[in-house]
Amino acid sequence: MAKVKIILPLLLILALAAWWFIPHDSEEDKAYYVAVFCAVDHQDSQTAEQQMRNVIEGGNSDYALQKIRYKSALGRRVISRWQALTPDEQQRARQDNSVCQQLLNR
C-alpha cells in the first residue's frame, strides 16, 4: 500500500511532464507556417527554413511586448510534408500559392 502512495503520484508527475514537453501547435500556427513556406523560395530545404525564420521573426516590432519566436520543429514538419509530395504535386504547388497551401494542409 505504501508503494502505491509513492508510485501513483510519481506516475502522475511523469505523465504531466511528458504532456508539457510535447509540442502543442494550434491549427492557426500550422496554417501560418504553411502559408509562409509557400510564400518563400523552397527549392532548398536549408534555405527555406532560414527564410521562414526570417519572415516569422522579422515581423516582430522592436517595441513588441510579445515577440513571435520561430518554432523549428513545426517548420521542419512543414518542410517534411513538402518533401513527401510527388514531383508533379511540387511543380503544381510552385506555380500556385493556393494549391501549395491546400496540398500541405491536408
Rank of each mutant, 00 (worst) to 15 (best):
L16P: 02
L16F: 06
A17L: 05
W20F: 07
F21P: 02
F21R: 15
F21S: 09
F21C: 05
I22P: 00
I22H: 00
P23K: 05
H24L: 10
D25S: 07
D25P: 07
S26L: 06
E27G: 11
E27S: 10
E27W: 14
E28W: 12
A31N: 10
A31V: 13
Y32L: 06
Y32P: 00
Y32C: 04
Y33D: 09
A35S: 05
V36Q: 03
V36C: 03
V36F: 11
F37N: 00
V40M: 10
V40W: 02
H42Y: 04
H42V: 00
Q43P: 00
D44E: 04
S45C: 05
Q46F: 12
A48R: 13
A48I: 14
Q51S: 13
M52I: 11
R53N: 09
N54H: 07
V55A: 06
I56Q: 09
I56M: 06
I56N: 01
E57F: 01
E57L: 11
E57N: 09
G58V: 10
N60P: 01
N60I: 01
D62S: 03
D62A: 03
D62K: 07
L65I: 06
Q66N: 12
K67P: 00
Y70C: 08
Y70L: 04
K71R: 10
A73E: 08
L74H: 10
L74N: 08
G75Y: 10
R77N: 07
R77G: 01
R77F: 00
R77S: 08
S80T: 15
R81N: 08
R81Y: 11
R81K: 13
R81S: 08
Q83I: 12
Q83A: 15
A84G: 07
A84T: 09
T86S: 14
P87N: 11
P87Y: 08
D88E: 14
E89L: 13
E89C: 10
Q90S: 01
Q90V: 00
